[in-house]
Design a protein around this nucleic acid. Sequence first.
RNA 1: GCCCGGAUGGUGAAAUCGGCAGACACAGCGGACUUAAAAUCCGCAGACCCGAAAAGGUCGUGGGGGUUCAAGUCCCCCUCCGGGCACCA
Length: 851
Amino acid sequence: MPDEILMSSNGAAPAPETEQPERYSPAAIEPKWQERWNADPSLYAAEPHDCGKPKFYCLEMLPYPSGALHIGHVRNYAIGDALARFMWMRGYNVLHPMGWDAFGLPAENAALKNNIPPREWTLSNIASMKKQFQRLGMGFDWSTEVTTCLPDYYRWNQWFFLKMFEQGLAYRKKSKVNWCPQCATVLANEQVIGGRCWRHEETIVEQRDLTQWFLRITKYADELLDGLDTMDGWPDKVRTMQRNWIGRSEGTIVDFMVANEPGGATNGTKISVFTTRVDTIFGATSVQVAPEHAVAKAFAATDSVLAGQIDEMIAQQVAAREAGDVGGIEKHGVATGHFAVNPFNGERVPIWIANYILADYGTGAIMSVPAHDERDFEFATKYGLGIKRVVAPVDEPEPELPYGAEDDAVLIDSGEWTGEACLEAQQRMAAFAKAGGFGSPTITYRLKDWGVSRQRYWGTPIPMVYCMACGEDTPIPVPEAALPILLPESIEITQEGGSPLGKVPAFVNTTCPRCGGPARRETDTMDTFVDSSWYFYRYTDAQNDKAPFDSEKANYWFPIDQYIGGVEHAILHLIYSRFWTKVMRDLGLIANDEPAARLFTQGMVIKDGAKMSKSRGNVVSPDDMIDRYGADAARMYSLFGGPPDRDLEWSEEGVAGIVRFLGKVFRIVTKYAGFTGGASAKTADDEFLLRKYHQTLAKITQDFSGRWHFNTSISSIMILVNEITAKEAAIDAGQVSDSTVAEIIKGLVQMLAPFAPFFVAELWEKLGQPGAVFRTPWPEADEELARESEIEIPVQVNGKLVTVIKLAAESDSDAVKAAAMVDEKVASRTTGKAIVKVVVVPGKLVNVVVK
RNA sequence: GCCCGGAUGGUGAAAUCGGCAGACACAGCGGACUUAAAAUCCGCAGACCCGAAAAGGUCGUGGGGGUUCAAGUCCCCCUCCGGGCACCA
């Protein structure tokens, strides 16, 4: 059936005898306008900074050039394009750019599979996806296109890396890192989701000890956290996710000394524990350390049984991670036989090694206070460790344990601190520990520095060299003048471990910038999230070959007024790019603290109630949709099917319905295209149509500035079209003045401009109007003309609807009440009963309460 | 376990401030046009009861309670679905 929609209108059939009106044919309209638009690159370009208009930076997240857009992209970009077009019509100077997040592993996989060089594969994908964007009629300014895998872009990644190295923000260290065997590379913490690789849901991430490059994002932890409080234009959901990810926790570090033993190798060793509840320290009945903790290793060195138990514990954790159930394993531990001294009361408490202590959070060691911590309670109960109550509410000395409240509670049985309020004691005890030299107030974060080294080929080379003469372990930065360090073009991609660049001697072998002696290059490349951390600044000055961008240009456009993309980047891209913005600000390149004033995260497109996937066979192809229904209908359906922040169920019948609607509009507009202005008397039909027209305009204008519920914007246009159709006979009978018809027809095309660009371009031309619709001023809704003169007031008796009465809009409460009371249906239900009260809400309803 | 969303006809949804529940559309049914079909146009359409029909009545926004003249909307409790975080000391 869908095929006929296009076929029937293609004029393939022999010409009919009688003259038929032209019918809507996206297949005829869309390619024609695509060609015209491609020939005029200035159409969607931004204007000079001194154009006198307010600026509006409208940005959708750039796609990865996988080879083809998916239907979710269509929705994402349809939202942004509608907004950009609306803002153009509202008189803004709009920047609406597009680019390609073009580095990444899929290009290498494709090279392996099809023997196509990654560069070639990527660039040809870009070419075909760009064509898709053009088929979709997206209004992007291609003159600022950014492709992150090209040297004119990635050289600035290298430049930033050098700046960060200078500032101490880029550094190298050996540490446990996440390794995805499938990707054959290291991953950042943010790329590990539930213990699995973000690109390979089925692949468990391993831990490896490697020397890697890190970016010091933790330096900005507090600012990244505090900034969230003021970012009203971002969804709460995203802000909460980022808050959790940063995971700031205020507490105290307290040093417990390992108790001296005759000849003990660990004499004088201290165990620093991190606690948020130092006020409960008198209740500590053991110290627990992670199996990887240095002290555990020291004990194990002289205790082979313990060593075996530790190994087992670590193995068990690895197994749990593989099962995807890290949190679910039972708490267990082993006593080391050693003791530590609580510096607050001198008590000796046993040192245990426990599987639930995380080596990489806090200090990797805790004091266990079973009375006031649920986990400690569980552990102490299992192993018969002491449980000592040290905190209780003032009026309830023995609450059920574990008892953790702090607001209302005071310390008991805590030496000189007994009687103090918990919150106060936390402050004072931390200060006391610091004064005594056995601790200090501390803030810890869940956020870790960003590991950016990748053992892959298709990424930005890290601009560092290692010189035998100057010291192999001392990285030496490449001089700025030597940038870009080019990725070698021809390279053999293999799936073996190790950085592919290491196998290219011409790349590896270089000279030391410091001593001129033989040196070798860093062979790791940068995480692709580096590319997307600052790409939107490059759009403001995409051809600059002296700097990543000109500060003046960036400062004109930034912050981004509206950023639109999927919520899956809430942590990854959106936290890295906030970090990068702060670094660039501190380098003096930009003035803004945050990249985007407003963020919108659209819902997923689903089919048959489920996420689209090849294995489910429910994938909808944009090209197919365009072929069969046209780009305008596909785009418009993606906005009409539901509010943009919710998931959208894709319905092909729904798209066909939009084609029908557009066909109706096409018929009406072409039919009345010859009507022109000219003053003439306004009839009641004139007033009616103008009223509906201005009401619709007001509704759409409001939707754009408010909730973006374009589904209701489009439905209100449908209602308007239905009203016009209903008055068609009156129009044809000359009962509506030409100027009214002309105004409404023109305005109808304008109000569709954000949603169906090809369609409106064609009709605009048919109306004999010059220029591009989306560059014309958005028609103003006239409040006076939109006002209803007569309104309907529902009347209830005891809260149940009885009738609806019609009244003049300006009727006051008394008049409304009087009209309601004399109504037959109301009277029949109220006579003989006592009227308790009559609620009159002017303009809304009347409710008569009787007994 | 914790933190966010969400649940409304056969379907997608609407109701923006507590005021006619189901706009608009999809699918469906009936009619007009047609030799016929498609396309197009017009009409019907929450469920149930009563009735030949018209009319009328009852119920109805995941479930239970509450506030109110009035609750899809506010408050309390619960169920289910989606997402995020998860032994974070």
